[in-house]
Amino acid sequence: MIDELLEREVETVETKTNKTIILFSGEFDKVVAAFVIANGAAAMDDEVTMFFTFWSINALRRPEKVAISGKTALQKAFSVMMPRGAGRLNTSHMNFAGAGPKLMKRMMREQNVMSLDDLIASAREQGVKMIVCQMSMDIMGLKAEELIDDLEFAGVASYLSDADDANVNLFI
């Protein structure tokens, strides 16, 4: 009886191979790293949850301006100052006032690395779950309409509940 229970316990432990990634950073290189890992894990048949909080949400913004009413002056200022979308992110090192990301993108192309846009598209194609922290959205005054489609909006409990079923959790 106890053996049987133990066996079942071992089975449930072994089946938990999901991966969760908290993406806090909004710099180009860190966002690329997170999506490379997410894509790799999905290709290995693991369920992947990415939880976007604070600066990383900028990587999910639509590149075009979206007219939103009801923002405070500070929120408006944030909207203008923060990068609009994956194509406008700075690098965490050697940003050189915006030249760094261009150089890095060129070097990635030369080495046949997928672009960030392609990595994001591939992650979605593979069913990577993307949860955006509603609280961060509220602080920064971002609205769902300003972000790309098919995202979930939730809080820390949603991420934690997925983390319970994961054997790897990253904070980037």
């Binding site: 894509n39 790799g40 999905a42 290709a43 290995m44 080495q111 046949n112 997928m114 591939s122 593979q126």
Partner: peptide
Amino acid sequence: RATSCPGPILAAK
């Protein structure tokens, strides 16, 4: 051949 990590694994999958 025209893709770097994680491309080959994605292609295999």
